[in-house]
Design a protein around this nucleic acid. Structure first.
Lengths: 343, 343
DNA sequence: ATTATTTACGAAATCGCTTTCGAAAATTTT
DNA sequence: AAAATTTTCGAAAGCGATTTCGTAAATAAT
């Protein structure tokens, strides 16, 4: 039972290809008798139209591409979920690609996707780190090609398209404020996303919260950490130098690791050092003590992206008029922070 | 700058489409002068051949579909990684789909993928639960359509294709044996995958280990748990009824949850109750105490699947002659189990 | 100068499908 | 019975590329 084409069916009934096509679409142009015979034959032999040919004819693939930097990050997985949900609801399938934070991989991925494979793209771009024209040209070419594009989280300012972003400034502000309100005096930041704009925004919020309490900003308290850095080694510096009693960590896995190290060094969490992390995923709930985290509402962001994109694809939104939606975060309070004092 | 086609370029130079195509392929049939002009023009205007058209002509998409039941399961993510790695190395891109353990979704996904969108498929099928002809017909149709297929982990016996599976029997055996060797007498099993074949295999290994020590099997010790069941409530039964000092849990997140509940009830892990879980993911290392886990070597499995599949696609393997590769597991010993007594 | 050979390009088929248009055949209307 | 419609189907164009084959012009060989 090899793959059946319209031509095969046409030959079998000694009719033309167009007749078969019409018959299978239940066209009134074909007599009922012939239609029935053809339809029955097609069903029996499991005929299915070739998607690729259809895509070519329709100049549409009914699928959208989602490009994320990391699949071990719960936030992106949630976004993926959200996108997939509404995409399916609206008749689209998604093809998801992971760039592993590599510009080269992102470039390859975008080139592959933008040559007809998808009707639109949802991207969280690694090029958002340094937004030089050199870095963003791949993403730029997407909009140049007139391919509908929605960027989320790691967006590129210079590119005009719909965007859905997290209110990272406010998130950093809220988290810091919460630490201050629960008695922290010296708050360090561990940032695995030091170069990113979202990282800077979160630190911006942190500074604002400090300023409100007239606490001077000390940039020695900001500790960037790279993928292959030894966290234990790096932490030892600030732990020894400063009298830290609060830590804000900018991603989930690093939060968990940081707490493990701090506990191993004999500090009590949260009494000696309180911790708040970013991304409320699977890890934070089950470690001991359970971690207070910033939830970015990934699923909602994914849903919003998908709706926006499909509206664009189907011409449901006014041409131009790109919108940027800002999604607020929530602080999920658990046991790695102290209680807010009454009164 | 709208999407450019060969026709557009041909018009611009008043030459034929075939000339342009040849020029862009640097054919010797075209004069150097014309070639240069055409190539330059194409580059300047960012011409890129339409993938869909190419796919149609070549009857190949250079992409493979990966269908997994769950994306929050670290094992499947690892497999995805492995597949992506060798797929990229060998010039393929992957399109990954998640079925959420739903047969309906799997059916939809397979129908979408098997009509020309991919050159081959890698599947861990939810239909492997009850392998009735009704359930497996979707996957069956894939091989009927002559689409190269590799199944992994959750495979279907009745379907002839290449398979890569975990040695789940041995894994269950090894884990149980380890618990017994470290002094456990009464070992319970918590299984969120009760209906699956891999679940049964693991339990088979468990039974074998018990038998070797002449410990009678007690099916009251096997506790299935569904997605929306209250784990706390269910655990209370066996914890109260039986004098359990060891637990084997068949997936990672449930392992973590189980330990949390046990600790909350005042048991010490591993002294009162030792725990071993399946899937060595991100969670197990960072909870307290760190969990002893069975590693299924997902990345390796993914790599193997991809190589097998691409060999098939490219006709590099002998037709027919399907192979089933069995991958051994490793026990990653951490702190949720006791030490092996010396001597 | 005549023939043979390159060189340089275009026409057309093909991939599998949809869709428009034209035209016989069957049916209805006058 | 002639004209007007309707029914039913096929030819052909088109989607965007590749590729085979044919051929005029230019060059080389005799």
């Amino acid at each position: 039972m090899i793959k059946l084409t319209l031509k095969d069916i046409a030959n079998h009934f000694s009719v033309s290809i167009s007749t078969v096509s019409k018959a299978l679409h239940d066209s009134h142009e074909i007599s009922d008798k012939l239609k029935n015979r053809i339809q029955e034959f097609a069903k029996e032999n499991h005929y299915r139209p070739n998607k690729v040919a259809l895509n070519l004819v329709n100049r549409s693939t009914k699928s959208i591409g989602v490009v994320i930097p990391d699949i071990l990050n719960y936030f992106f997985i949630q976004v993926l979920y959200g996108v997939e949900k509404v995409a399916n609801e609206r008749g689209y399938s998604i093809i998801s690609c992971v760039t592993d934070h590599s510009l080269k991989k992102e470039t390859m991925t975008l080139e592959m996707l933008s040559s007809g494979s998808v009707d639109g793209l949802i991207i969280s771009s690694v090029a958002s780190e340094r937004q030089t024209s050199k870095h963003i040209e791949n993403v730029k070419s997407i909009v140049d090609y007139q391919i509908p594009l929605v960027m989320f989280d790691r967006v590129i300012d210079a590119i005009e398209c719909d965007k859905v972003i997290v209110d990272d400034f406010e998130a950093g502000y809220k988290a810091t404020k919460y630490l201050l309100e629960t008695g922290c005096k010296t708050i360090a930041i561990i940032t695995p996303i030091n170069k990113t704009k979202i990282g800077r925004l979160r630190i911006g919020g942190y500074k604002r919260a400090l300023k409100e309490r007239d606490i001077p900003f000390d940039d020695k308290l900001i500790t960037p950490i790279g993928a292959k850095d030894d966290l234990d080694f790096i932490l030892s510096f600030i732990l020894n130098d400063k009298n830290i009693d609060g830590i804000l960590v900018l991603d989930e896995i690093t939060t968990v690791k940081t707490m493990a190290i701090i506990k191993a060094r004999g500090y009590h969490v949260p009494n000696d050092i309180a911790i708040i992390g970013f991304t409320n995923g699977q890890l934070s709930k089950y470690v001991t003590p359970a971690l207070t985290m910033v939830s970015q509402h990934g699923t909602y962001i994914g849903e919003t992206c998908a709706h926006r994109l499909i509206d664009r694809i189907e011409g449901l939104s006014s041409p131009g008029g790109f919108e940027t939606k800002v999604v607020k975060t929530s602080l999920i309070v658990r046991e790695s922070t102290r209680k807010i004092p009454l009164g």
